[in-house]
C-alpha cells in the first residue's frame, strides 16, 4: 500500500515545434563578424552555448556552430549572412528540416538518456551542447537545465531514437 510511487512524471518526452536551424562553418578569427551578423556573441570553445530569446548558438567543432532562430526568422538570418559574405568567406547551411527536436525533461531525464548515450552526462554543464551518439544515431545533445535536455536528431533516425526513448520511459514508469 505504501510502496514508493514510481511516477510517470519522473521524466517526460515531447517533440518540440520546428525552429530555424543553421550549420555555420567559419574561421574562428572571423567569429566576431559572424556574431554581428547573427546578433548574438557566438561561443568560442567546443561545447559552449549562448542564448538570447529565440536565438541560440552552440559550438560543436573547431570551426563549426549550430545556430537556432525562430522559424519565421530563417530568411532574415540567411540574408544577414549573405551580407557578411562580402567580408568573410563562410558556409551557412539551412538544416531546419534535417532534424527534429525531442525534449527530455524531469528528474530522471539524464537517467533516461543513458539508455542510448555513452557520455557522462554530468560533464555537460547547463547551457552547453555536444554532438554525440544515441544508439549509433548521431544526435546533438543540448542541456537546458539540470533535468532538461533537448535531443536534435536527423529526421531519418527519428523513429528509432524516439521509439527507444518512449520504450525506456515506459519501463521507467512501470518501475524498472
Amino acid at each position: 500500500m505504501n510502496a514508493p510511487v514510481t511516477s510517470v512524471d519522473r521524466v517526460s518526452i515531447a517533440v518540440l515545434p520546428p525552429v530555424a536551424r543553421f550549420n555555420l562553418r567559419i574561421a574562428p578569427v572571423d567569429l566576431k563578424k559572424a556574431s554581428a551578423a547573427f546578433g548574438l556573441t557566438l561561443p568560442g570553445k567546443i561545447g559552449q552555448g549562448a542564448r538570447n530569446g529565440d536565438r541560440a548558438a552552440y559550438c560543436i567543432g573547431p570551426d563549426e556552430w549550430l545556430l537556432h532562430a525562430a522559424e519565421n526568422d530563417q530568411d532574415a538570418v540567411v540574408a544577414a549572412f549573405e551580407v557578411a559574405r562580402a567580408e568573410t568567406p563562410h558556409s551557412l547551411v539551412v538544416i531546419s528540416d534535417r532534424e527534429l527536436t525531442i525534449e527530455v525533461k524531469g528528474p530522471a531525464a539524464a537517467e533516461l538518456l543513458t539508455v542510448g548515450c555513452p557520455l557522462d552526462l554530468s560533464c555537460i554543464a547547463v547551457g552547453r551542447a555536444k554532438r554525440t551518439v544515441f544508439d549509433y544515431a548521431q544526435v546533438t545533445l543540448i542541456r537546458d537545465g539540470e533535468d532538461a535536455f533537448r535531443v536534435e536528431v536527423w529526421r531519418s533516425f527519428f523513429p528509432h531514437v524516439h521509439g527507444l526513448l518512449k520504450n525506456a520511459r515506459r519501463e521507467f514508469a512501470v518501475g524498472f
Partner: peptide, 17 residues
C-alpha cells in the same frame, strides 16, 4: 569501453564517438 581524449574538444570521450 575505451575512453579517448580528443585534442580538439579537449575532452575525454567514449570510443563510440
Amino acid at each position: 569501453m575505451l575512453l579517448i581524449h580528443c585534442p580538439y574538444c579537449d575532452d575525454t570521450l567514449p570510443e563510440l564517438e
